[in-house]
């Protein structure tokens, strides 16, 4: 039924948005930490931040992959 589809939309929206926002926010946070003066190992934090950004873009691309009919057949 349509209620189920509405719930699907709600769930998909929530999952997708939260994933992207959390990953990106973590990236921003880690970048900020890495830029701190008293930080002992900025390199690791910075690369962690890049990993977060990378995962975030992967999540977006995966979402698009799910939607585009060309890929899902």
């Amino acid at each position: 039924m349509k209620w189920l589809e509405l719930l699907t939309v709600a769930g998909a929206t929530l999952t997708a948005a939260v994933t992207v926002v959390v990953l990106y926010s973590l990236g921003v946070r880690l970048t900020a930490i890495a830029a701190d003066v008293q930080q002992t190992s900025p390199g690791i934090k910075r690369s962690l931040a890049y990993i977060c950004f990378g995962l975030c873009s992967l999540a977006v691309l995966f979402g698009l992959y799910l939607i585009i009919p060309y890929f899902s057949g």
């Binding site: 939309v9 997708a16 948005a17």
Partner: peptide, 12 residues
Amino acid sequence: TSTASAILASSH
């Protein structure tokens, strides 16, 4: 992010 996910999910 919320706008885009909501619209894309509904469009789908």
